[in-house]
Structures are given as structure tokens and as C-alpha cells.
């Protein structure tokens, strides 16, 4: 091995090969980007309300307790399919009402139960948040999660 694979050959393989994989990866990324925009998330328009909802989601760092599409913290339930779980995926008004009621009831204060904080969220933002969660829920996630429990 020592004669065939010299240090400079090993170095060239490293640089050349890496460049090759970077190029392939970039090409697949471009394709995936288009696929997301045109197919997997195209089921519901990306409205200003959805965008606002995403901002609200980020402002309160919900991701550091919950998972969303299985990513985030493992302290609180999956929310990528919460609108399905609540049965309001296709009902904007119902989604807003049930989410609003839920958020206003936190923290529950139940001893020995994990607590969700109270957040100051106005009506427009709450509607956005509900739309954002419905938008996320309609994404084509290759049938994940396996069931409604998330």
C-alpha cells in the first residue's frame, strides 16, 4: 500500500473527490429546492399569515420544547401533525379557536406535569400561528409520522 498510495496521491484524492461530492450535492439540493416549492409544500399557499406564524413560532422558540417534523427538542409533543390530531386541518376558524384556547390555558400548573409557558400573542399572530401549523401539516413528509400520536 505504501508505494501505490503515496501522501501526495492521498491528498489529491481527498481534494478531487470532495469537490466531486460537493458538486453532486449542490445539484441535488437545487432539485430538492424546486421539489419543495412546486410539489411537497404546494398544497396550501404560503400566505403572509403563514409567514407571520412562522415568525411567532421562532420568536417564542417553541422548537426548544417541541419537535416539528421530528426535529427539535423531545420535551413536548410533535406539532407537525397537531392540526390533524385536533381534527381541524381543513378548518381555519376551528384551528384558530382551539389553538387560542389551548395557549391561553397555559401553564396548566398541574403538579408533576410538564409545563408549557404562557406567551403574549395577539389575535392576528395567533391566526398566523394556526395557519402556519396547518401549512406545516399539509406538507408531503413521505407519510411521517407513522400515526396521529406524532
Amino acid at each position: 500500500m505504501s508505494e501505490i498510495l503515496t501522501k501526495s496521491r492521498a491528498r489529491n484524492i481527498f481534494y478531487g473527490g470532495s469537490l466531486f461530492f460537493i458538486v453532486v450535492f449542490v445539484a441535488m439540493t437545487i432539485h430538492s429546492h424546486r421539489y419543495v416549492v412546486e410539489k411537497s409544500t404546494a398544497g396550501m399557499p404560503l400566505t403572509d399569515a403563514v409567514k407571520l406564524g412562522k415568525e411567532v413560532w421562532e420568536r417564542h422558540s417553541c422548537i426548544n420544547c417541541h419537535t416539528l417534523h421530528g426535529e427539535g427538542a423531545y420535551f413536548a409533543p410533535e406539532v407537525g401533525n397537531v392540526m390533524t390530531r385536533w381534527g381541524v386541518l381543513d378548518d381555519p376558524e376551528g384551528a384558530f379557536e382551539i389553538l387560542d384556547a389551548w395557549m391561553k390555558a397555559q401553564p396548566s400548573g398541574t403538579p408533576g406535569r410538564r409545563q408549557m409557558p404562557h406567551f403574549e400573542i395577539n389575535e392576528e399572530e395567533m391566526r398566523g400561528l394556526a395557519d402556519f401549523l396547518r401549512w406545516a401539516d399539509q406538507t408531503d413528509t413521505q407519510n411521517w409520522p407513522p400515526n396521529d400520536a406524532g
Binding site: 484524492i13 470532495s18 460537493i22 430538492s32 421539489y35 411537497s40 426535529e71 411521517w144
Partner: peptide, 22 residues
């Protein structure tokens, strides 16, 4: 490091299963 990048770059795909990607 060659084996790291040859596997790791496309290995990113193990996070792309269920988030809306192909």
C-alpha cells in the same frame, strides 16, 4: 478525511427523509 467528506456530504440525506424533500 477523504472518507469523512465522501460519506458525510451526501450523508446529509439522513436528515432529509421526512421534512418534505424528495
Amino acid at each position: 478525511v477523504a472518507t469523512a467528506l465522501f460519506s458525510g456530504i451526501l450523508g446529509t440525506g439522513h436528515h432529509f427523509y421526512w421534512i418534505g424533500l424528495p
